[in-house]
């Protein structure tokens, strides 16, 4: 992925570009959670399975730190999408 071109799409579910993410970081929103909430990167169908690592890399690059030093966001269930009508039928006690 080209992390030089600001038009590069980083989150393909929500169509968020590298430029938008860098702009949020410049404004002081430097954690995955803040960036997710403001730009919606990682909030789409795949829930960040594609862009999460890229976001960590971009934050690290912008802040000149290691990706391992970027605060992680909480992974939220479900891990795969489930139709509401199936959840409605399933009784929690049977699980």
């Amino acid at each position: 992925m080209n992390l030089k071109d600001d038009n590069t799409i980083v989150c393909r579910c929500a169509d968020v570009t590298l430029g938008e993410i860098k702009e949020a970081i410049r404004k002081g929103y430097t954690t995955l959670d803040e960036i997710k909430r403001l730009t919606r990167a990682g909030m789409g169908q795949c829930q960040g399975k594609t862009c999460r690592n890229l976001l960590l890399q971009i934050i690290a690059n912008e802040l000149h730190i290691s990706p391992t030093d970027v605060e992680l966001s909480r992974l939220r269930p479900p891990s795969v999408t489930i139709p509401l009508e199936l959840l409605a039928k399933e009784d929690a006690n049977e699980n």
């Binding site: 829930q47 139709p83 509401l84 009508e85 959840l87 409605a88 399933e90």
Partner: peptide, 21 residues
Amino acid sequence: HTVASLVTSVLPAVGKARVVR
């Protein structure tokens, strides 16, 4: 389970929507 049951009882057409988060 609870919210899916209640909402689909009032708005059945949303039942096919898939929960992401």
